[in-house]
Write a protein that binds this DNA or RNA. Structure first.
Lengths: 117, 117
DNA sequence: TCAATAATTCGAGTATTATTGAAGCATGGA
DNA sequence: TCCATGCTTCAATAATACTCGAATTATTGA
């Protein structure tokens, strides 16, 4: 991931409402959530939500699919993966051999290894 | 890390110049870099740099120490670690048991295990 | 066909953020 | 002491981002 893209992706997440939207979509998983359901969960007006969803979609953090009169939104894990990759590779002590500390110290301990990893 | 703090930290990084500043400081490691050296590296005017460094410091992503008439800046890895922790725990498929994919798939492969991890 | 529902779009108003150039404040060396 | 250096601060301006409410589009079901 290139620096300017990374900055744009970070900017998309750098807003409380949008961060919560994304979080809710991660929790919802592959089933996704309709815009209305999101609005209810986050206590946001439809137009505000629409605005933020557009930003997230533009940044590639979210996908949308129309189902009848509902629009289902889903988190795009691939983009988040790429962003985390950028941050760990470019912005972490791990990227600097002089420093023994690292930025993802707990993952190995906390989570069991996943098959797909 | 709390959601609003995470959003503020993301906002601090969500700007090309600031992202490059942080990257340069990560590469510089514990020795850090003087503001002037950063300005030269990034081809930014002193006042612009000062502005962005203030933002980064406010977000806790950067530390400063005066040495004579130089001001040395250092990346704060602890804050970055906390941010990455927030993102992997709250914004990743890993946080959703229904989804088999994950957001840090390459780390185990690419990087050798660190002692301090 | 008509009314209700689900979302998006638009324009206006406000707030926040970024850039610029000039001025200011220390520090170190002549 | 004086000047040059390194950096910060400030005020003004420009550019972006956010919110609100009204209008619009599209779909469903009566």
């Amino acid at each position: 991931m290139e620096t300017n893209i990374a900055a744009a992706t970070l900017a998309a997440l750098a807003q409380p409402t949008r961060l919560e939207i994304f979080r809710a979509l991660v929790v919802a998983g592959p089933a996704g959530l309709a815009a209305g359901a999101l609005a209810e969960q986050l206590a946001a007006t439809p137009s505000v939500l629409s605005f933020h969803l557009k930003e997230l979609r533009f940044a590639g953090l979210v996908d949308s699919a129309t189902q009848g009169r509902f629009v289902i939104y889903r988190a795009r894990f691939d983009t988040m993966t790429a962003l985390l990759g950028f941050l760990t590779e470019n912005c972490c002590a791990r990227s600097n051999p002089q420093d023994a500390s690292c930025c993802v110290p707990d993952l190995a301990r906390k989570a069991p290894p996943l098959k797909s990893c």
